[in-house]
């Protein structure tokens, strides 16, 4: 899987309450989650995410298991999230909903052009190449299918 987008820099330890607050969880309307994503961090951020790649600090997605966090980020149009480490439940959730994650510790400048190739484990930031850890074969397979729902539709 490959992709590209403009960087949006976020701090470390972004928790899933900040990604999507508990007060928006009781609905199945994904557009509501997308429009309120990161609201408690920066109320204007949701509308700048289309086509963006989030470059965050360590431990992205810590806290609650709410899958709505990964869905909200994807539905808002984010192409991928890059961070040195992810909280493990968020990691699984993101792959399961088809949101690519890349484990890498990158210097971030807002707006810089980022390209990635997940199978090769390569991230390019403003033309500079970085070799990064690849996802496990299973995770690549799930992501390649478009998420775990699509994976199981195919594999049953």
């Amino acid at each position: 899987m490959q992709g590209e987008g403009r960087a949006i820099c976020l701090p470390a330890d972004i928790d899933t309450d900040v990604v999507i607050a508990g007060r928006y969880l009781r609905t199945k309307d994904r557009s509501i989650w997308a429009s309120h994503v990161f609201e408690d961090l920066d109320p204007g951020l949701a509308h700048r995410l289309k086509g963006a790649i989030i470059v965050a600090g360590k431990n992205f997605g810590c806290g609650s298991s709410r899958e709505q966090a990964a869905i909200a980020i994807k539905e808002a149009g984010v192409v991928a999230v890059i961070a040195p480490t992810f909280a493990r439940i968020f990691f699984r959730n993101a792959i399961n909903v088809g949101l690519p994650l890349i484990e890498a510790d990158l210097d971030c400048t807002d707006g810089s052009l980022i390209k990635f190739n997940l199978a090769q484990g390569i991230v390019e930031v403003s033309g500079n190449r970085h070799k990064v850890r690849t996802l496990s074969p299973r995770m690549q397979e799930i992501l390649g299918a478009g998420g775990l729902v699509e994976y199981w539709r195919k594999h049953r």
Partner: peptide
Amino acid sequence: GVGATDMAAIWL
């Protein structure tokens, strides 16, 4: 802990 879609796959 896991998220909802992982749980669905366990139901399956």
